[in-house]
């Protein structure tokens, strides 16, 4: 009964936007997570020439107008962009005006937040523990897998959920890069924007606003809960 009510409460177009948003954010987070951990580790632990340039590059989407980021993505990964042509010719991957492009835009926009959270967690890990692991015979990679990664897990989870929430709300870069195509690239924010453009769309927009609030709050609560559980598991008593 409740299920049926819920299904009817949202119209098919709205449902489509919700499902698409979740799919885009999920993949954006999942695929960028390994890279995010790697970049956070590099920024936290390595000293090299050009570190500040890398740091700036990672943070750029946070401070640039989202439209600029979207435009740069379009120029680079669009069908006429250099990277876009390579992707299409070599791998048959087309990003422009596809949901995958929306995921790329969301991932780029969420990346700085993810890296910041994970970097803080890595900086909190005592390098002396890692040194101890290396004297016990663990190579760099094993030290990372068996000591560093478990200890930063709460930070990784926090970073991932933050990135997911940011991806759910991404609008400017997405609409600039992949437009606003229902079923392909129309995520919740794009759908709300589209509904508000037509007379009588306020009610549908309002329902999506409620959905957006519920998803954001749940993500926050789940992340708090999981991070606390993992921290207790890792912190060890």
């Amino acid at each position: 009964m409740m299920g049926a009510d819920w299904a009817n409460w949202l119209g098919p177009a709205e449902w489509q936007a919700v499902r698409l948003s979740i799919r885009v954010s999920f993949w954006a987070t999942l695929v960028s997570l390994p890279l995010g951990i790697f970049v956070a580790y590099v920024l936290a632990r390595w000293d090299f020439w050009g570190k500040q340039v890398l740091n700036g590059l990672v943070h750029l989407p946070l401070i640039l107008p989202p439209v600029v980021t979207g435009y740069l993505l379009l120029v680079t990964f669009g069908r006429r962009g250099s990277a876009g042509q390579v992707l299409e010719a070599w791998f048959g991957i087309i990003l422009s005006f596809r949901w995958t492009g929306a995921a790329v835009a969301a991932a780029v926009m969420a990346f700085p937040l993810m890296v910041r959270a994970i970097r803080l967690a890595i900086e909190a890990v005592d390098p002396k523990l890692e040194a101890a692991a290396s004297t016990l015979g663990a190579s760099r990679l094993w030290v990372f897998v068996t000591v560093t990664l478990p200890l930063i897990l709460p930070g990784v989870i926090a970073g991932a959920i933050l990135a997911f929430a940011k991806a759910m709300g991404e609008f400017g870069a997405t609409i600039t890069f992949v437009s606003n195509i229902p079923g392909q690239t129309q995520t919740i924010p794009s759908a709300i924007y589209a509904f508000l453009q037509v007379p009588g769309g306020e009610e549908a927009a309002g329902r999506l606003v409620i959905v957006a609030i519920v998803i954001a709050m749940s993500a926050l609560l789940v992340s708090e809960f999981v991070a606390r559980r993992v921290a207790r598991l890792v912190g060890g008593s």
Partner: peptide
């Protein structure tokens, strides 16, 4: 030789046990 290839048992002043294990 890298530390992990030296086959040493290092006992540190502060123990340095792995808190998650």
């Amino acid at each position: 030789l890298a530390p992990h290839k030296r086959r040493l048992g290092y006992i540190f002043q502060e123990g340095r046990l792995f808190p998650h294990l």
